[in-house]
Computed example of a mutant assay.
Amino acid sequence: MTEPSNTIIPVTAASEPLIAAKGLGKEFYARSMFRSAVTVRAVSDVTLSVGRGEIVGLVGESGSGKSTIGRMLMGLIPPTSGDVTFDGAALGKTRGSALRRMRRRMQMIFQDPYSSLDPRRSIGAQIADGMQIHGLVDASETKWRVGQFLEEVGLPAEAARRHPHEFSGGQRQRISIARALSTEPEFIVADEPVSALDVSIQAQIVRLLHDLGRKRSLSILFISHDLAVVRSLCDRVVVLYLGRIMEEGPAREVFLNPQHPYTRALISSAPSLDAEQRKNRILLKGDPPSPVNPPSGCVFRTRCMHAIPACATAVPALEKRAEGHYAACIRPEVASTSP
């Protein structure tokens, strides 16, 4: 795979993690009128971190647990197992005013900017909410600060008087970014922030997130299924399948030298004008298994063309393949095997 000519140079990140999850797991319990309660294993034994000033991409198919991980890192839902630390403090054990101060330092950008904005209130009032709740500005400065944040994301300060329905989808996402920035956060979870936008607008929002990350030294967890966007924006990539990490490493290394069969399949499935790449596309068999009853051993084995009986007996651990590059596969020799 060749390097695209329009690649954004990723932000150079410090090695010290700002937020880290260790052994993170999440189970949901679902009830039905016609059956007994079932356990849905959304996330299993996930360990990851985001360094200061680093942008980490979290990719995988729909239903792989990406958004669940983002919400656990934000403290919006509690993990069933494992723990999350933010700047050295345990998120699950922080209470009261300390938790309030911690929440100011982390914000979220949602996939659909229209549903995440209140249609009855002006955007200026919504951007001001965070600053007022955390006491960051005096009342006399609020209007000026709102205008600053709007201009920082490429909108005029006068737009503060308008309501969400008066803006396009791309403009509403810029408003959501301005609202996230209003508390001066250090960590942002961007949950599919460009998937609902036109391609040309996607590029503008990606460039905006990149520039803000560099200017403000933001740590960003960028959740997406668009591999081209992740490749151009992120410093590192974490590949998720059925709630487990399959591969992790520097973005350029993962895309040029994938070490897990699932990562190779994801990369080959990306749209391409290269006829040779389309001809060598890897087509996975079947659908992802249900998280209610995941396969034993490697959860990817039921769709993997390289699976052997041993893949069903033990959960593969993430093993080092290169500097900072890890993959969870008991057959490292298949990384260079043609499909």
Rank of each mutant, 00 (worst) to 15 (best):
T94R: 00
E333A: 13
E27V: 12
L58Q: 05
P10A: 07
I282P: 10
E16S: 12
H306Y: 15
K320R: 15
G53C: 08
I330W: 11
R103E: 11
S176P: 06
A307I: 06
P316I: 09
Y114S: 08
W144N: 14
C234M: 10
A312C: 06
A37S: 15
M131D: 04
G82N: 05
K66H: 07
A275K: 13
E247S: 04
A190L: 10
A160R: 03
G53I: 02
S140H: 14
G82P: 07
V315L: 11
F255V: 10
V254F: 02
I177E: 06
F187K: 01
D83A: 15
S272T: 15
D129Y: 05
D198R: 07
D112V: 10
V230R: 01
D129R: 08
S67T: 15
P10F: 06
A312I: 04
E16R: 11
S269D: 05
L136M: 13
T337M: 14
R278L: 14
A89E: 14
S49K: 10
S5H: 12
G60W: 02
L181W: 04
V230Y: 00
Y29T: 11
R121N: 13
D112R: 03
S217H: 12
S217Q: 13
Y241S: 03
P258D: 08
S232I: 09
L76M: 14
S15G: 12
T313F: 11
G63K: 07
K215V: 09
V239W: 05
L273S: 14
I69P: 00
R35G: 09
H260N: 09
R145W: 11
P289W: 06
E186C: 00
R41N: 13
K285Y: 09
